[in-house]
Design a protein around this nucleic acid. Structure first.
Lengths: 152, 152
DNA sequence: TCAATTTAGTTGCAATTGTGACGATCTATT
DNA sequence: AATAGATCGTCACAATTGCAACTAAATTGA
């Protein structure tokens, strides 16, 4: 008789939970950097990073690239525009569209934050060791294959 | 002259971003299961799972185990209590404390959901292949070592 | 012993987020 | 053309969340 059977699920071994916790921990640490030094929220940082990477994008494209809801992007874009880090350009061939672009000030902040991001990532990966780095990247790549194909 | 220099940061290669996106994708798929079939929110599912695993816990302990803010736990506990999946027991030696326990109905739901969770995880891991599974688990373990030590 | 501090849990309030509807514009079909 | 439907971005509203204050109870320490 099992007077104390094993629990049917061990949360700390459950992959979705572990993944979430790890992502949350890493994100919060990184978020501290752009929040404290630049007063950015996460949607703002993501919009800045996406726009910095691609140059000129519509709000919809920012959302598609960075997996954010369109209202989040809309608000983030407004915030970045208010601090003159971003400007809107009317598209002459389709007037529903706003082409968005970083201003020189926005680009400057982006370049600085990109450095911070690289430094953060380097420190994270260093602490994992070369073995851990390889495994993590391979594991993430495997996952990305999974949910990309399973999206539909 | 570099008329088009490489962007300073490629978001789709940036570990915190990839980790977040992967976790979000996996969590949302799993959340669909307990939401559609049981009407649970994420904090409710986590509280149920934690309590199911440990038997009797205080609200604070649930939060500590599952990394949730105490107000989230408080509200989740209330919701679970309302559907009679959980009951509160007064602690006679410390009357600030509420010892929480799943009711038979709550335990039944937990056992069912644990099966769903295992099935989900099994399918996820299967789709990664044995190689991907090993790498992902090793990568997560490395990360957990990182932020556990860096927490302080 | 009793005031000060700490801890457990809840609640009000403010900030953030998601949903749905909307106006404006473009595209497709007739 | 003209109507119907799709798309872009925004806004009002509702739901979710986090923060800070709070009550109640235990602990500390003068």
């Amino acid at each position: 008789m099992d007077k104390q059977s094993a629990p049917p699920l061990l949360l700390e071994e459950f992959i979705p939970y572990r993944l979430n916790k790890a992502a949350e921990a890493v994100s919060q640490r990184f978020a501290g950097l752009y929040r404290d030094q630049y007063g950015l929220t996460r949607p703002e940082w993501r919009s800045l990073a996406t726009l910095g990477q691609f140059g000129v994008l519509t709000a919809t494209a920012i959302g598609a690239h960075s997996s954010m809801h369109k209202t989040k992007v809309s608000r983030a874009v407004f915030a970045l525009e208010k601090r003159h880090w971003l400007r809107r350009m009317r598209d002459e061939t389709d007037r529903r569209i706003e082409n968005l672009e970083l201003t020189p000030a926005g680009r400057k902040a982006y370049v600085e934050l990109a450095k911070v991001a690289h430094a953060f990532e380097a420190e994270l990966l260093a602490s994992l060791g070369p073995r851990g780095e390889t495994e993590l990247k391979a594991g993430l790549a495997a996952l990305e294959g999974y949910y990309r194909k399973a999206k539909c």
